[in-house]
Amino acid sequence: MHTSSDGGPALFRLVRHWARQWAPDVVERFAADAPPSWTVPNLFVIQAIAGATGDEVTVADVARQLGIDRSVASRMVSEAAREGFVVRATSTRDARRAVLTLTEAAKGFLEASQAHQRQAFDALVGHWAEEDRERFAGYLGRLADEVLG
């Protein structure tokens, strides 16, 4: 039986495992016929915009969500915009700022990645009792919300 003191080491073992799995070719694993624009950096930008709160999402919000420098986030957003995933518009509150919105193509990419994530979760714990799967999913969601906001 595992105790709560085993939680830290187990968490870091999982983080190391998933960090190795999240290679640049990860997109190919969930969509072999995916377009070349379905890259990990584009997915990160899409997820950051989708997960941001507030009525105007900016590059600064993407940088904050991803934990990266604003200039790096700006380059990533520019690439995602070139690939047709992000639309930039002028802020109604501050004409110096660009507001970011997702295109339908971005929403399709996000839905495909989330379906893959659900399949990965099911592959890991699908053999558990439904009650245990639901409880674990709830705890994971709670942890993500508390850590990532």
Rank of each mutant, 00 (worst) to 15 (best):
M1R: 15
M1W: 14
D6P: 06
D6I: 09
G7V: 10
L11F: 14
F12T: 14
R16Y: 11
H17E: 13
H17F: 13
H17S: 11
A19S: 05
R20M: 08
A23D: 14
A23H: 15
P24Y: 04
D25V: 13
V26F: 06
R29M: 13
R29N: 12
R29V: 14
A31N: 11
A32M: 10
P36M: 05
P36Q: 10
T39P: 02
V40R: 03
P41M: 04
P41H: 06
V45E: 03
I46S: 03
Q47M: 15
Q47A: 15
Q47F: 11
Q47G: 12
Q47V: 15
I49K: 00
G51V: 09
A52E: 06
A52P: 11
T58V: 09
V59L: 06
R64K: 12
L66C: 08
L66R: 10
G67T: 10
G67R: 06
D69W: 00
S71N: 11
S71T: 15
S71D: 08
R75E: 05
R75K: 13
M76T: 08
V77Y: 00
E79T: 11
R82P: 00
E83A: 08
E83P: 00
F85T: 01
V86I: 06
V86F: 02
T90F: 02
S91N: 10
R93N: 14
L102V: 01
E104M: 05
K107I: 11
G108T: 12
A112R: 07
S113E: 03
A115L: 06
H116I: 02
H116P: 02
A123H: 06
H127G: 12
A129S: 06
R135A: 13
G138R: 01
Y139Q: 09
G141R: 12
R142Q: 08
D145G: 00
E146S: 04
E146Y: 01
L148V: 04
L148A: 08
